[in-house]
Amino acid sequence: MTGQPVIVAERVTKIFRDFWGRPRVRAVDDLSFEVRPGEVFGLLGPNGSGKSTTIKMILGLLRPTAGALRVFGHTPGARRVRARLGYLPEESYLYPYLTAEETLDFFGRLFDLAPQERRRRVSELLEMVGLAHARRRPVGEFSKGMARRVGLAQALINDPDLVVLDEPTSGLDPLGCRQVKDLIRTLAARGKTVLLSSHLLADVEDVCDRILVLYNGRRQAMGPIAELLEDPEEFRILLRGVSPEVAARIAETARAMAGRDVQLDHPRRRLEDFFLAVIRQAAAEAGPGTTPPATPVAQYLAGPSRSEPPSESPDDKLRPLVQPPLP
């Protein structure tokens, strides 16, 4: 995570005005932050906190009222910036009369991808998001989750260096949520920068390296997620394979040494892990012929780990989508 920051925001303010030019809403207020290359950066906040406005200013769809914003060292919205960007909006703003395949082909053409390369990527991305069987169905007939998957695929059609995901797990089932989180981790492992906006705390906690918490358009907290969530005053001892009696005696000893109360309980699995385990087992028992869950997205995007420097060769930029899956 070294090198020039991918995104630099310096005292950015965005005020929406009414028809007569009078200030109506101060959506973002004096916001400063940096996003470094290769990190997963989370924008966290309740509805109306300024997350989407910040993202749209980064994309060049809105202009800051005050302050400065640079993306890859350029003005947001510059063509060279847009060529390196992938964007998944909070709603799937797709053309309902295009099929899934035509949608990806359309966005691939806007990136001027060669026809052969475009066809290959469209095919692989559709398979990646589990929509290969519905490639010729109009997007307008899709459920919200399916449309979201097409939106995700179009955000990756150009193998972007910066992926901006606005509420990426919105509308997805738990399996889809997990796949998106896998995807984000894999993108980061390949040296890509991910800017993620969400109000689902668990999602952010799972994937983000650093977070920025917004409220009323202002920065409330920012930093590495481990540092923000760690409580240096508390310690936890994890014991496996011991009897309840032994655990009780250890707790008693600890209580005597610390001179304070010690809490003893069983750790709980996360609901998401439990759900995925159940689904996988059910699919395995049903055997061949049943609809399998979508192929894990991460497998399609597997590439060099984040410790390796990202390649600058154009050929390398196009390669990752066809590289073999990680073991």
Binding site: L61, R82, A83, L85, Y87, P89, E91, F107, L110, Q154
Partner: peptide, 14 residues
Amino acid sequence: QARQIQLVMVKPIQ
């Protein structure tokens, strides 16, 4: 109005 323009204009189109 349907905000499809937002997906198009973040691509490198003039």
